[in-house]
Design a protein around this nucleic acid. Sequence first.
DNA 1: GAGTGGTCTAGACCACATG
DNA 2: ATGTGGTCTAGACCACTCG
Lengths: 237, 237
Amino acid sequence: MAKKHEMIYRDLVRKITHQLYQSGTFLPSENELAALYGASRETVRKALGSLLENGFIHKIKGKGSLVLGLDKYAFPISGLTSYRELDSLFDMHTDTQVLQLAQTTVPQTLFHLEADEELPATYIQRLRIVNGEPLVIDNDYVLTNVVPHISKGVAQDSLYRYFEETLNLEIGYGSKEFTVVPATEGQRQILKLPPNSSVVSVKGITHLQDNTLLQFTESIHRADKFKFIEHARRKML
Amino acid sequence: MAKKHEMIYRDLVRKITHQLYQSGTFLPSENELAALYGASRETVRKALGSLLENGFIHKIKGKGSLVLGLDKYAFPISGLTSYRELDSLFDMHTDTQVLQLAQTTVPQTLFHLEADEELPATYIQRLRIVNGEPLVIDNDYVLTNVVPHISKGVAQDSLYRYFEETLNLEIGYGSKEFTVVPATEGQRQILKLPPNSSVVSVKGITHLQDNTLLQFTESIHRADKFKFIEHARRKML
DNA sequence: GAGTGGTCTAGACCACATG
DNA sequence: ATGTGGTCTAGACCACTCG
């Protein structure tokens, strides 16, 4: 399962992060890379496309692929959504507390569902504690017709690992919506927030590769600790 | 300047939004589309890649390209950053008020610059009023060595239009950082917010195609009106 | 003019889904 | 067995940059 353009992508990421290719310099040309990796130019270009998407390089026509990475004006990291995903990259002494685990249905108003829909689901509420501070409340609704049962041990560990490694479900795509809302009384208590605090609500819907609806999520983040960074290219469409 | 894969992309977007291809159904196969548009399959695939990126379709191996768009569980719109970009898509009775326009240097602490750097820039502060409500304060610092002068008329209209159409500058790429912070006294007054309000700060850096640093921006959004939606595919890298 | 990235092609083989 | 998308190739022509 080793796709060539992914191998090239990973190798280039490694060489950039290890500064074998330094920021401010140009990568070898596409033809040179093709020769280097024994690949066609289009395949190299696929790898470079991934580097572009993730903010590692910027391409300049007629000149080459400029390494960005550690540019002095660049913001720290690209494409991460809050601490939940930060945890997996850095060591942050993260703890997870399972607060609730029960059978219910997906709350209709929260996710803009039609009034008459009843979607049976396992409700999991978890508190994410980073460096001793309660930072995030994850509220997950996992549809029962896809995942019949979820144990406390699985909730404590990782839902995604359970889905992918044990159940062999393949995550496909999803959408997320970020808004800032006043904290509810319950959220204030759990996150130990002062009165009139705001939280960042990240609502998400996740589908499997085969388009099956899997999961609804609302993550409640302490607003003062929330950060989202995005790298964008000018879209010419 | 009509790139084939863009033409195909635009045509497919049109047909999806006009429901000639309805959500829940599959697009014609890649081979059929190639024949339809008189293009090679790889070119069609480039167009489909754009549709994928923008959340219009989901591809399933062995089956086809599933149209999403108006799926009943999908969130409304993908890839937009708040009202600033919403305005350009919908008619929203938007007004812009130029509050300040002056020569300064880019504030060092705000954008994590090194202490000894002095970047001369034109500072523009603008208030965005949507449907009579003051929603966003845009603070732009446009580097003087790239754009020597900006008139009030230009600030009132659109900086980007001026950069691209009049000065023929090509926007390349940028990064954005979203955080939630307490409103300053000045922001509270301008946005007419109650005490102890929070705002969403979107800090951005914009580069030109040739990698020249163009602009620093901090947009201050009313937190209760801010929304950001993202479509994500499972990344297999 | 030589080198670069941007686009496009016509073919090939594979893994997967479906009947 | 057929059709689908996923990957890869070897070549072509273009627009751009730079000496």
